[in-house]
Each structure stands twice: as C-alpha cells, then as structure tokens.
Design a protein around this nucleic acid. Sequence first.
DNA 1: AGTTGATGTATCATTATTTAATACATAGTA
DNA 2: TACTATGTATTAAATAATGATACATCAACT
Lengths: 263, 263
Amino acid sequence: MLEKKQNPLFVGTLAKGLRVLRAFDESHVSLSLAELVKLTGLEKSAVQRLAHTLHQEGMLERDPGTRRYRPSHAWLELAYAYYWSDPLISRALPKLVEFSRVHGETVNLAQISGDHIIYALRLPNQRTQFAASIIGRRVAALGTAAGRVMLATWSAQEVAHALESWPLHAMTPKTITDRAVIAQEIAQAAQDGYSLTQGQMILNEISLAVPITGIDGRAHAALQVAVSSHSFDPERVRQELLPALLDTASGIPGETLMQEPRS
Amino acid sequence: MLEKKQNPLFVGTLAKGLRVLRAFDESHVSLSLAELVKLTGLEKSAVQRLAHTLHQEGMLERDPGTRRYRPSHAWLELAYAYYWSDPLISRALPKLVEFSRVHGETVNLAQISGDHIIYALRLPNQRTQFAASIIGRRVAALGTAAGRVMLATWSAQEVAHALESWPLHAMTPKTITDRAVIAQEIAQAAQDGYSLTQGQMILNEISLAVPITGIDGRAHAALQVAVSSHSFDPERVRQELLPALLDTASGIPGETLMQEPRS
DNA sequence: AGTTGATGTATCATTATTTAATACATAGTA
DNA sequence: TACTATGTATTAAATAATGATACATCAACT
C-alpha cells in the first residue's frame, strides 16, 4: 500500500503501529482517532485497529469520556529497560548524583544520537523549564555545548561533515546559526577540553559541557551543567564548576571493553 | 496462529512486535535472535522479521559484531512524550526539585499502576542502588510505603480486594509478607496520613510516603522519601521530613478538572 | 427541534502480507 | 575437521490485515 518497497523481512504492520506510538510528543499529549489519522497519514481503519491493539496491550491509555488516547506507564517501563541496557548509565549515574549533591547545580548526561543529542540523565536543582528537566529530550547537536564538545573529539572530516549537514534550529534570539562561528566554537572546545554557551537554548542560561571520552579519545557522551546567568558569569563557571566537572567526567569510563554474557 | 481469538480489530502482528520490545528488561539488557525466540515464544522467522523491522525503524540498536539487539534511544524519547502527556508530572516536578534542594534527600513520585506502583520521577541524592535511582521501575504496591498510603485513601472494599489479590514479593529478609500486618499498616496510614517502612525494599532504608490526593480524597500518586537508617531513625524522619513532605504534597493538585483542547 | 458535519464504531469481501518450513551461511567449540 | 548453535535467505500457502462502506453518536448551528 505504501509506495516504498522494502526487504521482504520488513513487517509493515509493525512499522505502522510504531508510527501511531510516535505520533505522541510534547505538542500532542493526547490524540483522538481522527487526529491520529492526520498525524500518521494512515487509513482510518488501520489507525482504529492499531490504536485498539495498542490499548489492549497496555501501551495506550484511553479516556472513556473523550475517547482520546494517551501514552501509558509502559512508556516509562521502556525507559527503565533502556537504562539497564546502556552500560554508560550505571557508571555515570552515581557520579552525577555526587556532583549534584556537592554543587547543588543542575547536571545532565547527554549522548549523541545521530545529529542530535539526547538527555539520558538529568538531575535538576534549580527551577527551570519543564522541557529542560525531563529525560529523553532531543536537541540539534550543533546548537548545544554538549554536542560541540563531543564533536571536538572527532576527526576533522567528521566535524566538517557535521558542520555542513547537521540541522540547527534557533531556539532563542541569541542562538548562533552561523556555522562558521560554530566551527570556531568546536575548534576552541578541542583546545580547551570544554565548551561553554550562553542563552543558546534558554535565555539567561549558561551551559558548560565536558566530554566523556573512551580509550580512543572519541566522545559519544558529555556531562553538562546548566546555571542561570543571574547567579553566575562565565568566568565564575570556569573557575568553580569546570574543574569539578572535568574531574567527574574523568571518573566515568566512556567505553565498555567486554560484551555481556549470555543470559 | 495463537489459540486466543480476539476482537477482529486486534492486530496480532503489532502485538507480537510489542512482545519483542518487552522482552528487554533489567535482566535482559541485550538479546540475540535465539534468545528473543525463547523469551517471546514466537517463531524464529517471526522474530527475525519483527526484530529486523524494529531495527529499521530505530527502535532497536544492533551490535554489528555480536548481532545482539539492544534498546535504542527511542525508548527514552517515549518517556519524554509520556512526561508531557501526564499532567501530574509537570505539577509535581518543581515541587520535588525544591524539596530535594532544601532537604538533600532522595525524593520520588510514585503512581499506582494496576497492582504495582511505578516510579515516575526520581531525584536521587544519596548513593543508593541503581534500580532505586532510575525511573520506570515497578514494584508490588502492597510492599511499599507509597502503595500503602495510596490504598489508605481508598474505600474499604477496594482495600480488602487489594489485600487479598494483589501480589507481594519478598525483597529483603525483613520484607513483611503477612497480609494481616499490611492491613494494619494501611489502617494506620489512613489515620496518620503517611506510611513509614523500614528495610522493605532495601535493607537499612527507611521509606516515608504521603499521598497526593484529588478533590475526592482518593490518591493515585504519592510522594516518597528514602533515607538511610544509618543517618536517620524513624522518629527523626517523622519530625524533620514528614511536615515538609506533607506540605510539598499538598502543593500538588492531584487531579485535572479539564480536558486538553484539540491540537 | 431538526439539520449538518465530524468523529467514532462495526462489518466484510478481497487480496496483499505474514507465515512457518526449509535450506543455506557462518561462527564458535571440541 | 566435524559438530552444533545461531543467523540469514527464500519460498508456497493461507491467514490475517486491508480499506471501503455503512451505521452510530455527538456537538454546533439555524
């Protein structure tokens, strides 16, 4: 039915079901059948059946009154399984907790995910925007200190490729959209071993990121602290937070050397 | 192919795909094709196709060397969508952050989910077990202070039903498995407005929970603090933490009165 | 009240898709 | 080298998903 022919191993029905799940996001917190039809582009009958099945299987809640579908607790259980599956998480979490406890500032673990970063762990400390406090958020990597400091550990070709092809979205009036400037920032981060941004995601926010590097020196994750520019200026961040953050990051091995044994 | 006949709206293929996803948990962090076959009970060919599709669609990572499948970052994105969809989360989060900042102790938001509780928000402060620090964990409700204090706001019939039919698993040598004793605890919690347990989930841990009640007085969520019995005794918890926790919980409305508008 | 339009629900013949068996490929072990 | 377990590829067969359609329900408007 769809124009795109695939490998015979491809199960279209499952892919469609996933499209229904992924229709939910921060601007679509609950969806009616008709809305699902619009968002997924699937047939009304198909959405009816898929949503029914997802509901039966406990993946979607349904409001009996409005008949709208919502994500279920199962979506949090999946995150739980993810956390166990990613070996970096268990190594990083205690260090983040310790940093948060000592410094009382917001600290995050970001991982590269294609051309975005995703926040895998967040320990919010100050009042901040909701989106900036919850895990799973994806942001264009080039626009973040975390993304830049990871790129700073990569090869020149990889950086060049990222600079010309990765997306970049203006989030605040101060967001840098000039890729040449970002190239500079990455080069600077490569020298300094950290990246610091101001007001890129949220106004009046200073963000400091350091890489979590593996044995080959390449980073796929970064530690990041976010502070308000009302309480900090960049210099104070460098003096008070940077050494501790570097220290914390160095205590987190960036790579696993062995595979999991059979279960 | 399965013996169970369903509503014609039920799409079996999608349900099978979900079974593959749900095969991953804390003791199955990565799975080979053969292991997926065992765990899901599906045909090898089916698993081959479903896993292939989930991989194509970005729901499963695959190690090119070992050919084992793992959860992908998409699992965290789903949690992100969940957080936006549940209106309690955005109301509770800033209060939890504030509590955590002021008291420096671990605080959680638990929600009832069938006969289990699920930890929807966690702000760990002290070093503690990994499982106790990450969101999405489900625990038998009767065995937790949070579950008991929620039940304490329910009707006598509901409590009776829960006491006789809900599961209960011994996690530590001190775990109470006598349902009569738990009945007592619930009755006590109904009087006190809080529930306090010691060493039920983790030895040397004291857990204090208070309900988040809606206008009808029934709770579907609870705030819970966990402290080490090395630093606290129950009396000190009651004196130092309980008033603040009650205060925090009372600042979180437990129910929404209006529905979301169309998108 | 009655009409209209939008949404959710139910049914069913058609056929495209999944199925499950099998054969082949590859890798690790004895 | 042979053996076993695991992953991959290819089919014919028929099951199970499809999508069109009809019906039901509800809200808004005249």
